[in-house]
């Protein structure tokens, strides 16, 4: 999901793009979901292991790993939020997931680059930066949205 906000102040205009996913669970709730699932799976498996079917346990372990991995991967993706501010002199990319990471580039030298996979097997990449230093943005978007965001960013940077 992409939102673009245009702030019009008394002296300058700042365009803000917010790239984030729609999500329903907080990190805390995701952890509780995982713990609940893992506890239920363990109760069942330890019961049968106690009857002598201990070979259920490796499958339980594998399943808990996959469940945990899936919830973690999805939560990471869902909590990735990027705020891109374009004002008169700077382009700032503020990435907040669990920590904030702020990168700024001079607007005059900033470039928006979109890289398409030659074989079409992987999603495209959208990069923004200058002087050889780039950051990836819109990783959690689909290709169409990424392309749309790229066009909007070019418009904002080049002032077209």
């Amino acid at each position: 999901m992409v939102r673009s906000d245009v702030h019009i102040g008394s002296r300058s205009t700042q365009t803000v793009f917010i790239v984030e996913s729609n999500r329903n669970l907080s990190w805390q709730q995701s952890k509780w979901l995982f713990l609940f699932l893992a506890a239920c799976i363990c109760i069942v498996s330890f019961y049968f292991a106690s009857l002598g079917a201990w070979l259920v346990l490796p499958f339980t372990g594998l399943e808990i790993l996959v469940v945990g991995g899936a919830i973690y991967a999805q939560s990471c993706c869902a909590h990735r939020k990027q705020i891109i501010r374009v004002d008169q002199s700077l382009v700032e990319v503020d990435e907040s997931r669990r920590r904030h990471a702020l990168k700024s580039f001079p607007k005059a030298w900033s470039k928006v680059v979109q890289i398409h996979d030659r074989r079409g097997w992987y999603p495209s990449q959208l990069l923004i930066g200058s002087h050889g230093e780039f950051v990836e943005i819109g990783k959690n978007l689909i290709d169409d949205e990424r392309e749309l965001l790229a066009n909007q960013l070019r418009c904002a940077i080049e002032g077209a």
Partner: peptide, 20 residues
């Protein structure tokens, strides 16, 4: 989906024991 997650490892364990 909850049901499947809870019961499939038990079957997997059972048929693996059969294989053993």
């Amino acid at each position: 989906a909850f049901l499947l997650i809870l019961v499939v490892p038990v079957l997997a364990g059972g048929v693996t024991m059969l294989l053993f």
